[in-house]
């Protein structure tokens, strides 16, 4: 296990390096830089040159990359050129929004999927199964930004609910916070429900069809206990891995949903950073998200191993 974890971390570092070099190349390729954005439609060529020098943009790409990694080794993500604030503190501010959002929506869709999926698998072909299959298809196909718009119209215009699109940190007002994050959580949960429910259902069907289940039934074990403890344990590795993937994706921010609901999350920060050519901030967020994705996958692989030691975590990773 230890060797496996070490190997995973090593390959994660390689992936992060690749991603960040790609980011450097891309930002070098697309027109415009932070100095041009700062000067805007005012200011002379000399001003522009002075600002570029101030931001170190006049040096060659390899030099800038080398400088960046020197900072990174000492865990310094640098300073945002647009906000003039420390990149890490900017990211940290966003986590208060993004982490609860990701955790809540994943938890909701995971628990819904477990309950509905197990019942649907148990009564395969029944009414509940039909409903489940419909949910799987609908939830998996509905575009999240459209759902956001519909909910926004419904709650803002029709029901006139106050506080949507006005983010308040929970430390200021719990109620204000709940109102602001309630709809986005629903949207994100619906977005994940489709694939999750489908996977739970199919793994449960497989699990209930296995020999041990029949023999356990013969031995007289309770049906509920069988389904929700034994069968589920066998079936859970796929859904858990998926859960990890989804969570990691959400922690990377969901730019569109965040900007529709005016939430100050990581995705919106990323969009602004790209728009303003804030190289340090873009890099910081990309590296942070990549690290998170890798870490989440690792954590959930270990989790799968703990819940069901029989499942090979490598195989589950591909599911």
């Amino acid at each position: 296990m230890g060797k496996y974890v070490l190997g995973r971390i090593a390959s994660a570092l390689v992936v992060m390096l690749l991603v960040s070099i790609l980011t450097f190349l891309v930002l070098d390729l697309i027109p415009g830089n932070a100095a041009i954005v700062a000067v805007g439609v005012e200011g002379s060529a000399e001003t522009l040159a002075r600002l570029e020098a101030g931001l170190g943009l006049d040096r060659s790409l390899p030099q800038r990359i080398a400088d960046y990694y020197r900072g990174l080794i000492s865990l310094d993500l640098g300073t945002s050129s647009y906000y003039a604030q420390d990149v890490w503190s900017l990211i940290k501010q966003r986590l208060g929004v993004t982490i609860p959002l990701a955790l809540l929506s994943t938890a909701i869709s995971f628990s819904c999927a477990l309950i509905l999926g197990s019942l649907a698998a148990y009564r395969r072909g029944g009414l509940l199964d039909g409903i489940c299959r419909t949910i799987v298809q609908l939830a998996g196909s509905i575009p999240s930004f459209w759902l956001s718009l519909l909910l926004l119209i419904l709650f803002s215009s029709v029901f006139s609910v106050a506080g949507i699109g006005d983010y308040v940190p929970p430390s200021v007002s719990i109620r204000g916070y709940v109102t602001a994050v309630f709809l986005p959580v629903i949207v994100l949960a619906v977005g994940q429900l489709g694939p999750m429910l489908r996977l739970v259902r199919s793994s449960m069907i497989t699990s209930l069809g296995e020999d041990w289940y029949a023999s356990a039934r013969v031995k007289g074990l309770g049906r509920g206990r069988l389904i929700f403890v034994y069968a589920l344990r066998h079936a859970i590795s796929g859904p858990l891995t998926l859960c990890g993937n989804q969570l990691a994706k959400l922690l990377g921010g969901t730019a569109i949903v965040e900007s529709i609901f005016s939430l100050p999350g990581l995705g919106r920060l990323f969009l602004t950073a790209v728009e303003m050519r804030d190289l340090q901030l873009v890099q910081g967020i990309v590296i942070f998200i990549t690290a998170l994705v890798v870490l989440m996958n690792l954590v959930f692989d270990i989790l799968v191993h703990l819940v069901n030691p029989a499942a090979d975590s490598r195989e589950a990773g591909g599911a």
């Binding site: 926004l152 803002s156 215009s157 006139s160 106050a162 506080g163 949507i164 699109g165 006005d166 900007s259 529709i260 609901f261 005016s262 919106r268």
Partner: peptide, 13 residues
């Protein structure tokens, strides 16, 4: 508030 709908609703409330 990047979204106009949010702004109008916030002013109304």
């Amino acid at each position: 508030m990047p979204d106009m709908t949010g702004q109008v609703t916030a002013l109304r409330n």
